[in-house]
């Protein structure tokens, strides 16, 4: 029994799985209409944007030495604006009165997606360059990027949201493959891919090594600066993907989209067992963390509790999750 418990506790995802089960169980018993397939699927699709961002942020946190990306929410905003502005002709853009129905010009959509992700990756690259080459603390570098990218989003859109995206793009946000919503399928696919990259490739190994001990990595001939820059680029890319999903789900691009999402994504990563010290963590946990955040929001919606209570509960649960994780580590130490 004790060894079984120890084995369970050796997984860093154990606390978040435990928390999800507890909350789901409580909700199942006390909240009417909670345990319906539609509601559960809804919870999952609501978690997709934050979940995808959390995957990227997890990699940044793993890279160590205070690695963090505060700019992910702003990058989401600017990249989704860039996408919408590539698709929507300028003369129609300001036409906020009518919902546009644009034709599915696949070449334009492809171009828009490339620009969108390109902008995300470029912002990420700037973050990485400031951290790895200039040597700024990640907190400050990405804080500046957070301000600047949000400003850029508002500047190029003149602060105006735009509605009406081509149906094929909206399909990505609102439809299902068989019974899995496309955003959820995308989140799971990305999580699995990045999980494999993190645990099964030389790149993943060097990322864990760089985050766990930068000096040792240098002595082993690893490309420390390149690895650092790459994680910020990936994080920017995933923020842009999150932007695509969010825009597609809501059928609009808003310059204020994603405000505060970086903090939800960081919470998701930490809830999922990623250590702020760097060098250890997993993207599956991060996705579970995002699911958990959307899970606790759900009964609040169903029971018509004011949204405001959501944040205190979230804050308390984050603290509990970290305390649980500290306890878990203590327990799983071998004597």
């Amino acid at each position: 029994m004790a060894t079984a418990l120890k084995r369970i506790l050796s997984f860093k995802e154990a606390p978040i799985v435990f928390l999800i089960l507890v909350v789901a169980l409580l909700c199942g018993v006390f909240v009417p209409n909670f345990l319906t397939a539609a509601n559960l699927v809804n919870i999952l699709s609501q978690s997709a944007t934050v979940g995808i961002m959390a995957i990227g942020i997890t990699l940044v946190i793993i890279s160590g030495s205070g690695g963090i990306d505060l700019s992910a929410g702003s990058i989401l905003g600017v990249s989704s604006i860039v996408m919408a502005m590539t698709i929507i002709p300028p003369e129609l853009y300001r036409d906020t009165a009518a919902m546009l129905v644009l034709p599915n010009d696949y070449w334009v959509i492809f171009k828009a997606l490339v620009f969108c992700m390109g902008v995300g990756m470029f912002c990420g690259f700037l973050n990485g360059a400031m951290v790895a080459w200039v040597g700024l603390p990640p907190f400050i570098a990405t804080l500046a990027m957070m301000t600047a990218a949000r400003g850029l989003a508002a500047y190029i859109s003149a602060g105006i949201p735009t509605y009406g995206l081509p149906t094929s793009l909206v399909w990505v946000g609102q439809n299902s493959l068989w019974f899995v919503p496309v955003p959820v399928a995308l989140m799971i696919a990305l999580a699995v891919i990045v999980h494999i990259i993190l645990t099964r490739t030389t790149y993943g190994m060097s990322l864990l090594a760089v985050g766990g001990n930068r000096e040792t990595s240098r002595f082993c001939g690893m490309n420390v600066k390149g690895t650092l820059i790459s994680v910020y680029v990936i994080c920017g890319l995933f923020a842009a993907v999150g932007g695509v999903i969010l825009s597609a789900r809501s059928n609009q691009a808003h310059p204020d989209a994603g405000i505060g999402y970086e903090l939800s994504a960081i919470s998701a990563a930490v809830l999922g067992g990623t250590s702020m010290m760097g060098g250890s963590g997993g993207v599956l946990g991060a996705v579970l963390g995002a699911v958990f955040l959307s899970l606790i929001q759900n009964p609040i919606n169903l029971l018509n509790i004011p949204v405001a209570y959501m944040k205190p509960i979230m804050g308390a649960l984050i603290v509990i999750a970290v305390l649980l994780d500290q306890w878990r580590k203590k327990q799983s130490i071998g004597d």
């Binding site: 702020m276 010290m277 405001a308 944040k311 205190p312 509960i313 984050i318 603290v319 305390l323």
Partner: peptide, 26 residues
């Protein structure tokens, strides 16, 4: 006393405080 990384500890309270404010009066 709990030796929690301050980033996380204060982050938790950050979420809590912002929410309570709106809970009290929007």
């Amino acid at each position: 006393y709990c030796r929690m990384p301050p980033f996380i500890a204060t982050f938790g309270l950050m979420s809590a405080g912002a929410g309570f404010a709106f809970a009290l009066t929007p």
